[in-house]
Amino acid sequence: MSAGSTSAHSPDWTLRSAATADIELIAELRATVMRADLERLGRYDEHRVRQRLRDGFSTRHTSIIVIDRALAGCVTVRPAEGRQWLEHFYLAPHVQGRGLGSAVLRTVLERTDAQGMTVGLNVLQGSAARRLYERHGFVVEAQDPVDVFMVRPPGARAATPAARA
């Protein structure tokens, strides 16, 4: 699977299938990326944040985001409950804020749209990632004090900036 740069700020990148050897790198990435939000919510546990990734890790459904032959992030898309679930979408801090998340998400959503599949996900309350998902057509389906559950039907487009205001 390959992709590429989408703007002057977004680096060239590719997706490759995950391997069992990637699990500890991804577990560390998850702990790093989620720490601030989990601490803010009073839910950070140094062991649990890594173990939850290990417990649900699937090489079959996970792709590694690669920049310059190095792991820059990951994304999992797995079928369940009549939809595709977007999970474990993490970018290394040094590549965040440069359009990479949008580029990867567009690629993933093009594939799910081609399959006619609805995509579900959950994001932590107050996470900046929620804005990324809203820009790509996700809407809130349910929420609780910790999680926001979002959904995107095939081909959904985000509301225009004027409509969101």
Rank of each mutant, 00 (worst) to 15 (best):
M1S: 15
M1L: 12
S2C: 10
S5C: 11
T6G: 13
A8T: 14
H9V: 06
H9S: 15
P11I: 07
W13N: 13
W13T: 09
L15T: 14
S17G: 15
S17I: 12
A18V: 04
A19M: 06
A21N: 07
E24H: 05
L25R: 14
L25S: 15
I26Q: 01
I26E: 03
E28K: 06
E28F: 00
L29W: 03
T32S: 09
V33N: 04
V33M: 00
V33T: 08
R35F: 00
A36Y: 01
A36T: 11
D37H: 10
L38N: 08
L41P: 07
L41N: 05
G42E: 04
Y44F: 15
Y44M: 13
E46S: 13
H47N: 04
R48K: 13
V49F: 06
Q51A: 14
Q51C: 01
L53I: 15
L53Q: 13
L53D: 09
R54A: 03
D55N: 14
D55E: 14
D55W: 04
F57R: 09
F57C: 10
F57M: 10
S58L: 03
S58P: 07
S58Y: 02
H61C: 12
H61T: 15
I65R: 09
V66I: 15
I67P: 10
D68M: 00
A72V: 10
V75E: 08
V75N: 07
V75R: 09
T76L: 00
V77L: 11
P79I: 09
R83I: 05
R83S: 14
R83E: 12
L86I: 07
H88D: 11
A92Y: 04
H94E: 14
V95S: 11
G97N: 10
G101H: 10
G101K: 05
G101T: 11
A103Y: 03
A103T: 09
V104T: 11
R106I: 03
V108F: 05
V108I: 15
L109K: 02
L109S: 05
L109E: 06
E110Q: 12
R111P: 01
R111G: 09
Q115C: 02
M117C: 10
T118I: 03
V119P: 08
V119D: 08
G120A: 06
G120N: 04
L121R: 02
N122Q: 10
G126E: 07
A128C: 00
A128E: 02
A129K: 08
A129Q: 05
A129P: 02
R131H: 03
L132P: 01
E134K: 02
R135I: 01
R135F: 00
H136D: 01
H136T: 05
H136G: 03
G137R: 00
V139R: 11
V139E: 14
E141Q: 09
E141M: 00
Q143K: 10
Q143E: 15
P145M: 10
P145R: 09
V146S: 06
V148M: 07
V148F: 01
F149C: 11
M150C: 08
V151I: 14
V151T: 15
P154S: 09
P154K: 05
A156C: 06
P161S: 05
